[in-house]
């Protein structure tokens, strides 16, 4: 359906925006390496089914490969900045202080509690959903500490937020047309959207209304 395709495309757009900008400007200003590392973990644990070769469609398989590849490439580019622009890299690392063990640990526990089947694939899948829902937190934490958001960060988070928002009408659509309700995805998806809503709300209040930028 249209919501799902638009959702996937804005997800892809968010990564392309990030990739292109970092590639072109060699700037990592305002980007959280920790959030990006979490996304690599999210994609790798979620798309493990690629290895089973029970592929759903060309679209599905290609997108999965692109997401894994692009997220790894982002890390590579950030690491290249380390040698090219050591000052900016150090500055980024100094501000990227969120402790990700407080996200990975609880997500692993949640995956053990909430899953459809106690198999490696299903546990990893559940883990990836929980982790994706909170993976943006180091990024938001960084924004709240610095008190200002660069154009790159803003565009990136906007595209990601749009992707999450579009998945909600997609689930409603699928519930009515296919009778499909995938509770784990919906719950973690709503949780994730709530985190983004907070960003959008603050962004609207502070930036659009022109009063600087700060997150609670």
């Amino acid at each position: 359906n249209i919501f799902r395709i638009l959702g996937d495309l804005s997800h892809l757009a968010s990564i392309v925006i990030l990739l292109r900008t970092v590639q072109k400007t060699r700037q990592v200003d305002g980007i959280s390496l920790k959030t990006q590392l979490l996304y690599v973990l999210v994609f790798c644990t979620r798309y493990l089914d690629l290895l089973t070769f029970r592929w759903k469609s060309v679209y599905n398989t290609l997108m999965k490969m692109v997401f894994i590849g692009a997220s790894v490439r982002v890390i590579q580019l950030i690491q290249e900045c380390k040698t090219r622009n050591a000052v900016a890299y150090k500055d980024m690392m100094a501000r990227d202080t969120f402790q990700i063990k407080y996200l990975v640990g609880p997500c692993a526990i949640l995956a053990l509690v909430f899953n459809y089947k106690f198999t490696v694939l299903e546990l990893c899948w559940s883990f990836s959903l929980w982790l994706e829902s909170v993976a943006i937190l180091p990024q938001l934490f960084m924004l709240s500490r610095s008190g200002k958001a660069g154009t790159l960060t803003t565009h990136y988070i906007f595209a990601l937020g749009l992707y999450r928002a579009l998945y909600i009408p997609n689930w409603i659509w699928r519930y009515y047309t296919e009778g499909r309700l995938e509770k784990l995805s919906v719950f973690t998806g709503l949780l994730q959207t709530a985190l983004y809503s907070d960003f959008f709300y603050i962004y609207y209040k502070k930036v659009i209304k022109g009063a600087g930028f700060e997150l609670p």
């Binding site: 759903k56 997108m63 997401f67 299903e122 499909r180 995805s185």
Partner: peptide, 10 residues
């Protein structure tokens, strides 16, 4: 096929 456990979304 249990529709709920088919993870066809990205």
């Amino acid at each position: 096929v249990d529709a709920v456990t088919v993870h066809d979304e990205l």
